[in-house]
Design a protein around this nucleic acid. Sequence first.
DNA 1: AGCACTCTATACTGATTTGTATAGTTGTCA
DNA 2: TGACAACTATACAAATCAGTATAGAGTGCT
Lengths: 188, 188
Amino acid sequence: MNTLKQKILQVSTDLFQTRGINSTGVDTIVAVAGTTKMTLYKYFETKEELILAVLQQSHQDFQNWMNDKLGGLGGSPNERIQKLFEFIEEWVTSPSFTGIAFIKASAEFPNEENRIHQLSSQQSREFRQFITKLAQDANIKDAEGLALQLSILFEGAVQAEQIKRGSGAIKSAKKAAKTLIDIAIKQS
Amino acid sequence: MNTLKQKILQVSTDLFQTRGINSTGVDTIVAVAGTTKMTLYKYFETKEELILAVLQQSHQDFQNWMNDKLGGLGGSPNERIQKLFEFIEEWVTSPSFTGIAFIKASAEFPNEENRIHQLSSQQSREFRQFITKLAQDANIKDAEGLALQLSILFEGAVQAEQIKRGSGAIKSAKKAAKTLIDIAIKQS
DNA sequence: AGCACTCTATACTGATTTGTATAGTTGTCA
DNA sequence: TGACAACTATACAAATCAGTATAGAGTGCT
């Protein structure tokens, strides 16, 4: 792994989340990363490519972490979908949490033809499909319906937490998720 | 009412939603509004003031519309909170809907010390309090808890709809809301 | 007619943006 | 020692940004 490329990615991720993507210039990024623009543009053709790389890495990190957590659980499929929001809470309440990248990116790039928006949209869909699979494994009848509801709770709670940290939105979403999951299980 | 000021506000609202706030320059705004920068800066001291005015007007419009809808209903408090997401769906699925301003603004201005972020945060809180009042009128025991859950559903569904229009998120949120409301009523 | 007011037209400042060109430095490996 | 690669330093181009200065056009009131 190239450490300088990783450093640029990590600094960009952090600055994009805390200051916004459009408000963060490449000059700021290289200054904080302790390098120069020439090096940045060696690894990323344009700022847009850098943004896409940041989005991809952020989503990968989250998905890997969640997969490990759920995979290391070893319980029944029912227990695993029940634990989903426990882990989301753990992720979101972590001190290093600054938001979910694709949620912020889709707001800053609202145009559906924009590549950044399209990637955000794809990642949102991927996470929903991930929940759908959890629901299917648990033999839930309307797995897609439940997954859509849970993904809305997820995005809404993250959104609320981005607006105001420590708002208790995650705890509330977790409780709502438990209610919805219990009912979906009963109906199956 | 000053028509030119209104025109600038309306054009700004539209451009901010469809292209993003930071990506929309004042030059673009005045060009689309068919006026000049001198006029814009006569009514709004800075671009920040313009953004704040757009946020305020958007929120006012939404709240007024919702108040009228719920007020003209005349049913029992129970029926009114049940109808909340019907109206939200009507608002969101309207062809002119381009998103909720304070949700996008908080993403573009993540810093909690920023005035735009603070106003967004306040509007999010105001809408939650509005739901709380609906729940209290319906004699729901944990009115604040239900209101928080419903506001998360609202923000999540709007977020999902901003990422992908026609995703069915609103319908799904409406269904989840009904479930959560029914349970909260039973527990009261 | 003359005044006041709103708005337009246009050019400008100064800062900041993304991206590049050019030259020099540093460390590594043979 | 010498070559190669990664990286730094700096200066620059061209566009765009927010905001201002200046001069004049149009309209209505008295």
